[in-house]
């Protein structure tokens, strides 16, 4: 499997009123082409910061990010970031948002067809003409996901994409994502606070330490898809990861 993302010695600190805040402390790992990595870690540890560095939005203080062997300096359509805070354009309709990234598609009718296809995938059929302020928080998140998928990026950076969704919709979106990945083979980096979600989706789960963050533990998830979340294997892995996070098992 060729290496898609190659990180070495990434560090980042921010200067604040109270002095420098070390956020990311020497993170190195590699991600294979088509691999799905889930990142879990305590709130505020630096997960989003790490992801924004990898996607090219902020430069690391030291270390380097290689994508396909070349140094990543800027964000681009090859790697789309689904932001934790949401960035669906409120002045465009759902359809216009989904068409926004389709720069390489020539004809408008083709763009509309692609937009409608992805609206359908995320369960927003019938809302193509709606404006974001007419949607619920969960629907908005789905627009965000669909907009990213529509451009078929080589890498998907997903920062807690399903956390605004209810349990049922979250499960449905996970299954849709797995279905799409079966066809499109994106490389995925997913930040989540839901350990079960990480195990459900990822080939590898990385546990980050509290700030300044570094990789504390890595778990390979070897089970084939579709995974049965109630299986003892999954539960065992879940307990092990929770233990790394300092959460005592509840049973």
């Amino acid at each position: 499997m060729p290496i898609k993302i190659d990180l070495a010695g990434l560090r980042k600190s921010f200067s604040t009123d109270k002095g420098t805040l070390a956020v990311v402390d020497d993170v190195s790992f590699q991600v294979g082409d088509g691999e799905f990595i889930a990142i879990v870690g305590p709130s505020g540890c630096g997960k989003s910061t790490l992801m924004r560095m990898i996607a090219g939005f902020i430069p690391p203080d030291s270390g380097r990010v290689l994508i396909d062997g070349a140094v990543r300096t800027q964000p681009g359509p090859q790697g789309i970031l689904i932001s934790q805070h949401g960035s669906v354009f409120p002045w465009l309709t759902v359809q216009e948002n989904l068409m926004f990234g389709l720069n390489t598609v020539e004809s408008t009718s083709e763009k509309i067809a692609i937009a409608n296809h992805y609206a359908n995938i995320v369960g927003l059929k019938g809302f193509e003409g709606a404006y974001p302020h007419e949607l619920s928080g969960g629907m908005l998140k789905r627009v965000e996901i669909a907009r990213a998928l529509a451009v078929k990026p080589a890498i998907l950076y997903m920062d807690e994409p399903f956390s605004a969704l209810d349990a049922l919709m979250s499960l449905r979106m996970r299954n849709e994502l797995l279905k799409i990945l079966g066809q499109e083979r994106h490389t995925v980096l997913l930040i989540t606070h839901d350990v079960e979600e990480a195990i459900h989706l990822a080939d590898r789960v990385m546990v980050l330490s509290p700030r300044p963050t570094r990789i504390q533990a890595t778990f390979d998830v070897k089970m084939p898809h579709p995974r049965k979340l109630t299986s003892p294997e999954v539960q065992q892995l879940r307990q092990a990861i929770l233990k790394e996070l300092g959460v005592e098992a509840e049973d």
């Binding site: 681009g76 790697g79 805070h85 002045w91 926004f100 720069n103």
Partner: peptide, 27 residues
């Protein structure tokens, strides 16, 4: 900034950045 970042991420042309992001945002 999150809107400008998203536009930057999708790699749109300057023309599209202005007509579909900046001007509607300022309208």
């Amino acid at each position: 900034k999150r809107y400008l970042r998203a536009a930057e991420n999708f790699g749109v042309s300057r023309y599209k950045l202005f007509t579909q992001v900046v001007i509607p945002a300022v309208l």
